[in-house]
């Protein structure tokens, strides 16, 4: 073939394929390993929250009583030891891996899969327009998720969650909650925003962000857990604090000189204006 004609043809093909790929790929490619950055909420994410710190959580009175009744000894029970973090919480920990499942003929995106470092849990985000199952279907820790691209933002809707938690110190998130998530990629930075709507335990939606950096070198490590009997307990024993008897919950407020009321959370404590309220509240003597 004449080299000039060949060059023209190649150019045309290249231009065509560019057009095609850009048309198909208004959606971003999220596949890869993303390493967590810990510029915010460090205590909440790795060391774990302090006892009695519910500040900034829009929990209602019912959830507050759940939290005040919670005893950390609960997670020493064998059946609680390897309980995984639910999908609206697990992203807080370390790295995640995202990968695509595409139709081999059409290259249409069927699903995105996400693996968390924490507990090595995997979840599927269906991108093929399927419906959510009926309410009587099984609920899981990861829930049932469907996603779609809003421009270049991946928006995920999750239902069918089992009961979970907003913070690892007793603030529960109910199994009636639905969750909306957004994955937003800016070059090598990925932002995850989660919005928890819980008609049972929240006064307002709870919103949380986490950031990740794209990694060329890292892999997500494995994570094993095996339950053991750490303490012999009577069968069926559930550790908890009877109402009004939990002294542990004062630890956070007294350690940091924060009014007890502010430490107990509620929607108002999420907003900057609450600082004015805090100034009017009595401060506990430091421990």
């Amino acid at each position: 073939m004449n080299s000039l004609i060949r060059s023209v043809l190649l150019l045309a093909l290249a231009a065509g394929s560019c057009l095609l790929s850009s048309a198909a790929m208004s959606e971003k490619n999220l596949a890869g390993v993303w390493v967590g950055t810990y510029s915010e909420d460090w205590p909440d994410r790795f060391p774990g929250p302090e006892l009695g710190d519910y500040a900034g959580l829009p929990i209602n009175d019912a959830d507050r009583l759940r939290a005040l009744s919670w005893s950390a000894s609960l997670i020493a029970l064998p059946e609680y030891q390897c309980r995984v973090h639910p999908s609206d919480y697990a992203n807080s920990f370390a790295d995640i891996r995202l990968w695509e499942e595409r139709d081999p003929i059409t290259e249409k995106l069927i699903a995105l899969h996400l693996q968390h470092f924490a507990w090595q849990t995997r979840r599927t985000i269906w991108m093929d327009g399927r419906e959510h199952p009926p309410e009587y279907a099984q609920h899981t820790s990861m829930g049932f998720s469907t996603g779609q691209w809003d421009g270049q933002v991946l928006t995920i809707h999750t239902t069918h969650l089992k009961e979970g938690w907003l913070r690892r110190n007793g603030a529960a998130r109910s199994d009636k909650a639905t969750v909306t998530e957004h994955f937003i990629r800016h070059g090598d930075i990925l932002t995850w925003t989660v919005v928890v709507n819980d008609p049972i335990y929240l006064e307002e939606p709870f919103i949380r962000n986490r950031d990740y950096r794209y990694s060329v070198d890292n892999q997500v490590a494995n994570y094993a857990c095996d339950s053991v009997v750490e303490m012999v307990r009577a069968p069926g024993y559930i550790p908890h604090h009877l109402p009004g008897t939990n002294e542990d919950v004062k630890i956070f407020a007294e350690t940091h000189g924060i009014p007890y009321k502010a430490a107990m959370g509620g929607a108002a404590t999420m907003y900057p204006e609450y600082i004015k309220v805090i100034r009017s509240l009595p401060v506990p003597s430091p421990r």
Partner: peptide, 21 residues
């Protein structure tokens, strides 16, 4: 693993469950 999967429970009323529920 943990509180997920394995034996399933069909409740008297309500949704299909596993050990976590």
């Amino acid at each position: 693993y943990g509180q997920d999967g394995g034996t399933l429970v069909i409740p008297g009323h309500g949704r299909l469950s596993d050990i976590g529920d």
